[in-house]
Design a protein around this nucleic acid. Structure first.
Length: 483
RNA sequence: GGCGACGUACCCAAGUGGCUAAGGGGGAGGUCUGCAAAACCUUUAUGCAGCGGUUCAAAUCCGCUCGUCGCCUCCA
């Protein structure tokens, strides 16, 4: 298995610190606003990595934190007229609502910064003792000049950083690049007691404290969005390694951005879409599919057209699921071979190997999805040959199981076709109930039996205008939602 | 200014030295169908931004040029 490591800027063979175990940490959200689709990408990407590690048989421990105290939360609390912790709770609840919809599983531990104040203080104290940090006016700063590796992760030279520093002048820092481990609180701000007086933790220290507690001094994978490389992860690495004297993380993994009109989606540009807005227009599985249909490190251009294509693809999948089900429900007492048995048998034999090859190569979900649709095409072709009997049942059942195995890792295609169509019906706001539709189908069947094609076609056309598509087959007429 | 990434068909997108350049969408033609839809088949890149170079062999490695974007400030 190979993983691209930001630290070395190369794909490397994955060798866990402890054989058979994977310990991973990803930076979650700062709980001060609704999540946008970029947060969804990060969450989904790491969710799939975790699922795949489990699938590969690793004992996997996955930590994803919440930053529940921070300047932005305090500001938001003022705006909304709420207590800071009420703001954090509100947006953490919203986060879970969004992520549950998107099929993102819970991490094994989901620590909140404010629950680890004493651990953070212990690390800060240790950094002062080792000469890597200093107290100034009630705050404590990490002195980047004392850590010779500073800049290694983000490939930056400390001199260049200082030269181009756009950071506001802060008299209490020895060097403009020094960053806060502990911030003195102003009057009226939330504060915790510390050896340096009342204050609150700096942003970076929480991840060091929580990962150290739950994953130990050195762990396997640390991830987040590419915008966290600098300064967040650079600082995290500096303070953690300065404190423990050991390597902090073996593989740093970062996902690419979502763009709108080629520009990074971000709060400051205001070109972002919240998850809720998008789920109002598109099915959650389509959103997940869309995000996994491009490699996690590449940028993805967000657009309604792309989401629509994702819906069409998923619809193709569930249409095939229905075909499989209809096939298996047939009387199979006669044996009839399909023309393309050999092709199907061959791909059934290679499918899981190809799936693993794709995922082993830096979690290439786009390629693995390609493999799924290749199998779908060959299976459809096989079913077009109208096979019957035990041999064909065996082959089709195998295909069904393999598709499920791959889909479970991606957490895609796990619903029933009925659930898919019900969701589409809701999202497309189809103004008819299922019984309305079935009544129309009965009416049309009568017309067809009378060979009144004009009447039959008129009913079909009316339904189409409502977003319902009819498909006549041997056993009757099926309906589905137009995507 | 410093550092980095990307540029593959009409669109999205995989492929980072060697079988005929995955997969999806769209277009065209066909099979099936009362007609459709779905499904399937054929077709849509002798070529991977451009120009050089390395190599028996390059989309893939190197150099330059052009273009797009990101990080250097909170940011997934």
């Amino acid at each position: 298995m190979r993983i691209y490591n930001t630290l070395t800027a190369k794909k490397e063979d994955f060798v866990p610190v402890k054989p058979g175990e994977v310990r991973m940490y990803s930076c979650g959200i700062t709980a001060y606003d609704h999540c946008h689709i970029g947060h969804a990408r990060s969450a989904i990407v790491f969710d799939v990595m975790r699922r795949y590690m489990r699938y590969k048989g690793y004992a996997t421990t996955y930590i994803r934190n919440f930053t529940d105290i921070d300047d932005k939360i305090i500001n938001r609390a003022h705006q909304e007229g709420l207590a800071w912790d009420a703001v954090a709770k509100k947006y953490i609840d919203e986060y879970y609502r969004d992520m549950d919809m998107l099929g993102v599983g819970r991490a094994d531990v989901e620590p909140k910064a404010t629950e680890y104040i004493s651990e953070m203080i212990a690390i800060i104290r240790g950094l002062i003792d080792k000469g890597h940090a200093y107290e100034s006016a009630g705050s404590v700063y990490f002195e980047v000049g004392t850590f010779k590796e500073y800049g290694r992760l983000s490939k930056r030279d400390l001199e260049d950083l200082m030269a181009g520093a756009r950071i506001e002048v802060n008299e209490s820092k020895r060097n403009p690049m020094d960053f806060a481990l502990w911030k003195a609180s102003k009057e009226g701000e939330p504060a915790w007691e510390s050896p340096w007086g009342p204050g609150r933790p700096g942003w970076h220290i929480e991840c060091s404290a929580m990962s150290l507690k739950h994953l130990g001094e050195t762990f396997d994978i640390h991830g987040g969005g590419a915008d966290l490389i600098f300064p967040h992860h650079e600082n995290e690495m500096a303070q953690s390694e300065a404190f423990t004297g050991k390597p902090f993380v073996k593989y740093w993994v970062h996902n690419g951005f979502i763009t709108v009109d080629k520009e990074k989606m971000s709060k400051s540009l205001g070109n972002f879409f919240t998850i809720k807005e998008i789920l109002h227009k598109f099915d959650a599985e389509a959103v997940r599919y869309f995000l996994l249909s491009t490699h996690y490190r590449s940028p993805i251009e967000f657009s309604d057209e792309q989401l629509k294509e994702a819906e069409v693809s998923i619809d193709r999948y569930y249409t095939t699921v229905l075909r499989i089900r209809d096939f298996l429900a047939q009387d199979q007492s006669q044996e009839k071979a399909s023309i393309d048995e050999k092709t199907l048998d061959t791909i059934l034999g290679s499918f899981i190997g190809s799936f693993k090859d794709a995922m082993d190569d830096d979690f290439n979900t786009a390629l693995s999805i390609g493999g799924i649709f290749e199998l779908i095409r060959i299976l459809n072709k096989y079913l077009d040959g109208r096979p019957l009997g035990s041999r064909s049942v065996e082959l089709v059942t195998r295909a069904q199981n393999l598709l499920k195995e791959a889909g479970d890792v991606l957490n895609l295609f796990t619903r029933t076709p009925e659930a898919w169509y019900a969701s589409l019906m809701r999202i497309k706001q189809v103004p008819m109930t299922e019984s309305d539709i079935l009544a129309k189908i009965r009416e049309r069947r009568q017309a067809r039996e009378n060979k009144d094609w004009a009447a039959a076609d008129s009913i079909r056309k009316d339904l189409d205008a409502q977003g319902i598509i009819l498909e006549d087959n041997k056993d009757g007429t099926a309906w589905k939602i137009k995507v």
